[in-house]
C-alpha cells in the first residue's frame, strides 16, 4: 500500500471524496427540487402522458440546451440542470481521484483513472449510438 506521503493517504482521500459526493448530491437535489416547484406551478394542472416514447426535445438533450433553458429559468431546464449536476458528481469524483493518485505519485493509477474519466466524458459529450 501507499504510505503517508505529504499527508496524502488513501483514507484521507476517501474522506474528502465522500464529502464531495455528498455535497454534489445535496446541491443537485436542491436544484431539482426548486425546478420541480416551478414545474408544478406551471404545468400542475395539465395531464401528463409518458406512455408513448417520443424522446426529449433537443434542448433537453444537449449540455448547451440545458444550460440555456436553466439560465432563462424554464422549469424543465432547471430540473434537467440539477440532474446534470447529479450525473457530474461521480465524474468529478473520478477527476478528483486522478489528482489524488498523482499526489500519491502513483502513475499507474493516474493512467487507469484517466481512462475511466475519458470514457465518462465520451458518453456525456460525444457518444451517439
Amino acid at each position: 500500500m501507499i504510505g503517508i506521503r505529504g499527508g496524502w493517504d488513501d483514507q484521507r482521500i476517501e474522506k474528502i471524496v465522500g464529502n464531495l459526493l455528498r455535497a454534489g448530491v445535496i446541491i443537485a437535489a436542491s436544484v431539482v427540487f426548486a425546478g420541480g416547484v416551478f414545474y408544478l406551478i406551471r404545468y400542475g394542472n395539465i395531464h401528463p402522458n409518458f406512455s408513448l416514447f417520443r424522446g426529449e426535445p433537443s434542448d433537453m438533450r444537449s449540455l448547451a440546451g440545458i444550460f440555456h433553458d436553466a439560465f432563462i429559468l424554464r422549469p424543465r431546464g432547471i430540473i434537467q440542470f440539477g440532474l446534470l449536476l447529479l450525473i457530474a458528481t461521480p465524474v468529478a469524483r473520478v477527476a478528483f481521484s486522478a489528482v489524488a493518485f498523482a499526489l500519491e505519485k502513483d502513475r499507474l493509477y493516474v493512467v487507469i483513472t484517466l481512462i475511466v474519466l475519458a470514457v465518462l466524458l465520451f458518453s456525456l459529450l460525444w457518444a451517439r449510438a
Binding site: 459526493l21 414545474y39 409518458f50 430540473i79 440532474l83 465518462l120
Partner: peptide, 24 residues
C-alpha cells in the same frame, strides 16, 4: 455511481431523461 453516470450520458443525449418524471 460511476457506471450509471456513463449510461446516463448516453441516455440524456438520446432523450430518455424526462425532467418531469425524473424529478419525483
Amino acid at each position: 455511481g460511476v457506471t450509471a453516470a456513463a449510461s446516463a450520458g448516453v441516455y440524456l443525449r438520446q432523450g430518455y431523461v424526462d425532467p418531469g418524471l425524473a424529478m419525483p
